[in-house]
Amino acid sequence: MTTPVDIRLRSTRPALDARPLEKRVGLIILATDHTTEPDFRRMVASDRIGVYVARIPYANPTTPENLRKMQPSLTAGAALILPDEPLDAICYSCTSASVVIGDAEIEAAVQAAKPGVPVVTPPTAGVHGLKALGARTISILTPYTVETSRPMAAYFAAHGFEIASFTCLGFEDDREMARIAPASLVDLAREATDAKADALFVSCTALRAALAVVGMEEAIGRPVVTSNQATAWNCLRLCGDDEPRAEFGRLMTLPLN
């Protein structure tokens, strides 16, 4: 017969920290996303900042119609991230969907689950980043089709940028977009950047563009802003982290204006 183990309940509990980590960044990403989580682990996560992820349904092809279908899932996705606990920032990580759904609509959907949380999207972060760099005339590179790229052009034009050139690659599947080699993006950036442009915006959270930012900047002699780099920068600054990270491009050395 086994002798019962005498388990002692300690009379007092140890003191608790206010939070396991000081700052919290939420990420709402597509079910098919291969890139945002690794990028945020590299650029945002630390002993001070935790990154917490929820995935929402998405089905290719990447068309404006399919992108809009994610809107009803945004509130539920946000609610899954540390339920009933506050966040310091939350990012919806899809550039093309953010443009077609709309900034105000995304913010309202996310804040329905997380009231008051600052909401970051790639296009809004891209706008902030380009303005922080002093860019007025830009070139844009996307992996999308022409149909999906048109709303992107309209968005940046509406935010006051002159678009010197716009290049798209014609992909319809975000999983294929994620397979474009970072080294290829350097060549594509060189090809896509107009001589009149102050900076290049590389759109799409599926692209592994954050790994190629420095190479792209060296190739074109101008600042480069990418979707995941811009949202990471925005989230870091909202968490009070102003440490320069030049290995991820010029933007990562600047404050959030």
Rank of each mutant, 00 (worst) to 15 (best):
S93I: 00
P64S: 01
T62L: 12
P115F: 03
T142G: 11
D33C: 07
N228K: 09
A246P: 14
A210L: 00
E172T: 15
A199S: 04
L16N: 03
P143H: 11
V119T: 04
M252D: 10
R136C: 03
L133M: 07
P122S: 06
M216R: 11
A206I: 00
V146A: 15
H159V: 02
V213W: 12
D103I: 00
I140H: 14
A108D: 09
A219Q: 09
A199V: 01
N60T: 05
A89K: 03
C168V: 00
P83Y: 11
E162G: 13
D198T: 03
R8N: 05
R250M: 11
C204G: 06
K114Y: 07
L82D: 05
R68H: 05
R68V: 02
A78G: 04
P143W: 10
R10K: 15
D84Q: 12
C204D: 04
L185N: 13
V119M: 09
V127T: 12
F161K: 07
P223Q: 10
C94F: 11
M1C: 05
S11C: 02
P4A: 07
N228M: 10
I220S: 06
G240D: 09
C204K: 03
A178N: 09
S11L: 13
L9C: 06
A89E: 08
M177H: 07
R55N: 06
V99E: 11
V213C: 04
P20Q: 04
V25N: 08
R222W: 15
I81N: 13
A181L: 04
A212N: 08
M252A: 14
V146S: 14
A181M: 05
E85G: 01
G129R: 03
A59G: 01
G215D: 05
T95A: 14
A183H: 10
A45C: 00
S46V: 02
T137A: 11
H159M: 03
S203K: 03
L236K: 14
E191C: 02
F156T: 02
D187R: 13
A112R: 06
L16R: 14
T253V: 02
T231I: 01
E162K: 14
R150D: 14
T12A: 11
L188I: 01
P14D: 11
A15H: 04
A195R: 14
E22T: 09
V186H: 09
G221F: 15
R250F: 03
P182Q: 12
E172Y: 05
S11T: 12
V119W: 09
A108E: 13
P118Q: 10
R136M: 01
T12F: 07
A246C: 01
D242W: 02
D103M: 02
D241F: 06
V53H: 12
P61Y: 07
L238Q: 09
S98P: 03
R222F: 15
A18M: 03
V119H: 12
P4I: 00
R24Y: 06
